[in-house]
Simulated scan of single mutants.
Amino acid sequence: MKKENPFTITFGKQPNKLIARYEDTDRIISTFNADNAVSQTFLIEGIRGSGKTVLMTTVAKKLEEEKDWIVINLNPTMDLLSNFAIRLNSECNSKPELLSKGFNISAAGFGIGVNGEKVDTDYVGIIEKIFKELSKKKKRVLITIDEVVHDDNMRVFASQFQIFIRQDYPVFLIMTGLRENIDLIQNDPSLTFLLRSPKIVTGPLSILQITRQYKEIFEIEGDKANELANITKGYAFAFQALGVAYWNHSDGKLEDALSEFDELLDDFVYKKIWTSLTSKERDIVKTIGVDEVSTGDICKKLSMNNGTFAKYRDKLIYKGVMESTRYGYVSLALPHFYEVVKYF
């Protein structure tokens, strides 16, 4: 076994060991690489820790390896439009072959120079000038924005991005975010074009792939690896967290690894998820407990009618906390969620 733990619980970092979402990755890349792309945007949504950033990063790295792509990663807490202009300018200046001879840019000074003549312009003007140059070289630009929120900054940027698309510029966009934040952005009256954007929901990872990775990394029997994989329920962060914990306690008891597993889930994810739930939603979660339970039993224990419960059920499923695999029954979708939140 390797001395260095191959798993990571650092959000935003590409794990050394990850479960590839081949279908989703191929779908985005093939769409963006098409001669006439049916969409120039993709939205990736899901609960915290579901692998949204990893999927976007995987796509960005694969496209960055192709000679015709430029990848610009933006911070949603900064002014998106000006930040994009500055980063695009910096990327092009670092690769002189991207622009025509004599073409130089000074984004900080709002200046564009062609053959020694400087013309003052704004950030949008700078971006458009660069796009025109890149179009001549058949280059494409991918913008990635992680954990977007619905605010004026995003509204201005997305509105301008729509204009770039109308002008047939070679620019593409991937955004990740919590489901509620993505929905707010899509339903903004000024950003209705995003309603037509393909959306990917980061659901559970393949238990088969998790089993195979655990078996190989920990050098254990298939049944034991499958037992560990099923504990994660396919939840992306749980795959990493249980990997970290089991690596640290591989020579000890599974109970010790599960104890650390619960602590990692608590510290990194579950506290935030729990605080996002209403008081009644929390009551329902604690009533469900560890195993699958009938909706009738929940209603009886909480003195709630079926119609009222149905509304809360839909909200909890929407938030990625609850699942219903058969009629009349529900269970918690997140691994060890009850084991952690029962102490809250």
Rank of each mutant, 00 (worst) to 15 (best):
S39Y: 04
P76F: 05
D68L: 12
V285G: 11
P15A: 13
P198K: 05
N305T: 12
I130N: 01
Y246Q: 06
G116M: 06
G51T: 12
Q209C: 06
I210N: 07
L63S: 07
R313K: 15
V148Q: 01
A108Q: 14
F11I: 13
W247Q: 00
K2E: 12
I72F: 09
A108M: 14
R21V: 08
I163H: 09
L63G: 05
R48D: 05
S50K: 02
Q167W: 07
A158F: 14
P96V: 04
E323H: 14
T53W: 02
D35V: 13
L258Q: 04
A85I: 06
S279G: 03
Y270W: 03
F172R: 03
F237H: 07
I207T: 07
A158T: 04
T232Q: 00
V330H: 06
F237I: 04
Y338F: 15
F239E: 13
G252S: 13
L43A: 11
G328R: 07
N305Y: 05
I145K: 08
T41I: 07
K199A: 08
V321N: 01
I9T: 15
A158W: 01
P96T: 07
K311N: 12
A107P: 06
L178D: 01
G116S: 07
Y312D: 09
T176M: 09
G252A: 09
K52P: 00
Y22Q: 14
D122C: 10
K253C: 06
G51D: 11
T176C: 09
S190M: 10
D26M: 05
E255F: 04
T25E: 15
L178A: 11
I210Y: 02
E23I: 09
M304C: 11
A85P: 06
E147F: 08
E180C: 02
S82C: 03
G328Q: 10
A257K: 00
Y169T: 01
G102H: 03
A310Q: 15
G252C: 07
I145M: 13
D79E: 09
Q14P: 01
A107Y: 04
F261W: 05
R196H: 11
I29H: 09
Q209V: 04
S106R: 11
T8V: 13
I284S: 02
L81F: 03
L134P: 05
D168C: 05
F344G: 01
Y214D: 00
R21F: 10
G109S: 11
K139N: 06
L332P: 00
I200N: 08
Q167R: 14
A37C: 08
D68F: 07
A245V: 01
R140V: 07
L134R: 08
E180L: 05
I29A: 09
Y343F: 12
I86N: 02
E255T: 10
Y312S: 11
K136P: 08
K311M: 12
Y318H: 14
T144L: 03
A241D: 03
N115D: 13
